[in-house]
Amino acid sequence: MTTLSTLNKFKKDGVKFTCLTCYDAMFARMMDNAQIDTILIGDSLGMVVQGHDSTLPVSVDDMAYHTANIARSNKHALILADLPFMSYVTLPDAVANSRKLMQAGAHVIKIEGGSELCDLVKTLAQAGT
């Protein structure tokens, strides 16, 4: 099983690792068989799976659903899941929504932003998300 410690060792040793985006159980099984190191469940599923023009309509429930499907079909990869747009504006929202994705099977939560998120990232890291 790939862990954050595994990735840190890879970085230290200059070893490259694999990361692919996945949205469903069938592809997660194929990635598991191929020993892909990390799988990202991206909010891009809004366009790829749901047919939207952008990622904006994707909900935390959508992300949790896809994360759970992938987690059930994966034994090897570290699973990263996006928190979708506007789902981490407040600290309580960020913690609750991170919990939801981790309970669905994510090992790591991905958020997008800049230095304005430093306190949020620190709080989530201390909480174990």
Rank of each mutant, 00 (worst) to 15 (best):
Y23E: 05
A64M: 06
D24V: 02
A68T: 06
D37S: 10
H52E: 06
T38P: 02
Q103H: 05
Q50P: 03
K12C: 06
D62S: 11
C118K: 15
K100P: 01
T21Q: 03
T6D: 09
A77W: 04
T38S: 13
D119Q: 14
D61T: 15
V15G: 08
F10A: 15
C22A: 12
S44C: 04
V121I: 15
F27H: 04
K12H: 10
S73Q: 05
C22Q: 03
K9D: 05
T3K: 12
R72F: 01
V121E: 06
L91H: 09
P84D: 10
L101K: 12
M1E: 11
K75W: 00
H66V: 06
C22K: 07
M1P: 11
A106Q: 05
A81Q: 03
D93S: 13
K16F: 12
L56G: 00
K122W: 00
L4S: 09
Y88C: 09
N33R: 14
Q35T: 07
E112C: 04
L56E: 02
H76R: 14
P57Y: 05
K75Q: 11
D82S: 11
F27T: 07
M1G: 14
F85C: 04
P84T: 01
Q103W: 01
A81E: 02
V58F: 12
M47Q: 13
D24A: 09
G42F: 12
A94K: 03
N69W: 01
I109L: 11
L40S: 05
V89K: 13
M86Y: 06
T67F: 05
I111F: 00
T123F: 06
V89M: 03
D37K: 12
Q50H: 15
D53V: 03
F10G: 09
A81C: 13
A94P: 03
I70Q: 01
D62W: 06
A125V: 08
K100Q: 09
T55H: 05
H52N: 12
K110Y: 10
